[in-house]
């Protein structure tokens, strides 16, 4: 195979995997805390929007990212209050929030920029890349020159593995999802742990949204997250919330995304290419369930 082709495919995979990775790492936190987070889609979208807005207004991608993260955290806080303290159904609230944000971003875009379904401008500052030219083809293309958020996300994966499995907070987080009564019995409030998990999840989904709108495409368009919040959810369900497995599965889903991009330029109908990531997430989930069912059967 053509080396250029492999390189492009690899770089696109990494680029596409980054937001899925960040979101699923965030969702893994709430997953461990006992909440299947279906609001990640909305969290990414609100961040994608505010990242673009603030990047455009300030000319700085950094402020853009900060704005996106803050917006996403606020919404996540709202979600957590509903789910952990008002005991509302997490699916119902999650979808209400997703739909709210889908229309809210559209509404704000119209009010603020009179755009139709998308907003782009050369003034939107893009997220920096780790720009180093060593002259070595492999280093330059396979290790360097990715978005800084890509490096950050991989670091976060390892950091979360540390937090979840090595620290006191991580222990409580895992107990929170597995047996909240044990936590209550030890005098720790379940709701508070869930709240922290949700806020952190908001932050990570915020980064994911920023990567989408300030690096992957550098614009905001209607519902631009395109179900990635749920691809991330599938990744969490498959990985059992283990950060290193999340990393691997996100890369896999990133690869499907990259193949989708690549295939759009090929002879087959682009719709099938666009369909690919969604079909593959169902297929991977299906394979996972077939495998676990076999294990149950043996036990």
């Amino acid at each position: 195979m053509d080396i250029e082709l492999i390189t492009t495919l690899f770089r696109t995979s990494i680029r596409m995997a980054t937001p899925i990775l960040l979101a699923s790492l965030g969702g893994a936190l709430t997953y461990h805390a006992g909440i299947i987070n279906v609001a990640m889609e909305g969290l990414m979208l609100i961040s994608a929007f505010f990242s673009v807005v603030f990047s455009y207004l300030t000319g700085s991608a950094f402020y853009g990212i900060i704005a996106g993260v803050v917006a996403s955290m606020l919404i996540s806080l709202l979600y957590s209050v509903f789910v952990s303290f008002l005991k509302a159904n997490n699916f119902a609230i999650g979808f209400a929030i997703n739909i709210l944000i889908s229309s809210l971003t559209l509404f704000l875009m119209r009010v603020m920029f009179q755009g139709k379904n998308a907003f782009n401008s050369p003034d939107i500052a893009s997220i920096m890349e780790l720009k180093v030219k060593t002259g070595n083809y492999f280093l330059d293309n396979y290790l360097l020159n990715f978005s800084i958020l890509t490096y950050l996300s991989i670091a976060i994966a390892f950091l979360l593995a540390y937090i979840i499995y090595k620290t006191s907070f991580g222990l409580r987080l895992r107990v929170c999802g597995e047996m909240p009564q044990a936590l209550t019995a030890a005098g720790i409030k379940v709701g508070v742990i869930q709240l922290w998990a949700s806020i952190l999840c908001g932050g990570l989904c915020g980064l994911a949204g920023a990567q989408l709108s300030l690096y992957n495409v550098r614009m905001f368009s209607r519902d631009m997250t395109g179900g990635r919040g749920f691809v991330a959810l599938a990744a969490i369900l498959i990985s059992g919330g283990k950060p290193k497995r999340v990393l691997f599965i996100s890369l896999l889903f990133g690869l499907f995304d990259a193949l989708s991009v690549k295939l759009q330029n090929e002879k087959i109908a682009p719709q099938f290419a666009l369909m690919l990531p969604y079909i593959m997430s169902v297929v991977v989930l299906l394979l996972f369930h077939l495998k676990t069912r076999k294990q149950y059967g043996k036990a």
């Binding site: 709202l78 609230i93 929030i97 709210l100 229309s103 809210l104 509404f107």
Partner: peptide, 21 residues
């Protein structure tokens, strides 16, 4: 913009969910 309707609808759902408790 007409997209306001979606916002109004979703806001209503959240309030009802909050008060339902």
């Amino acid at each position: 913009p007409a997209e306001i309707s979606g916002v109004l609808q979703a806001v209503m759902v959240l309030f009802v969910a909050a008060f339902k408790t």
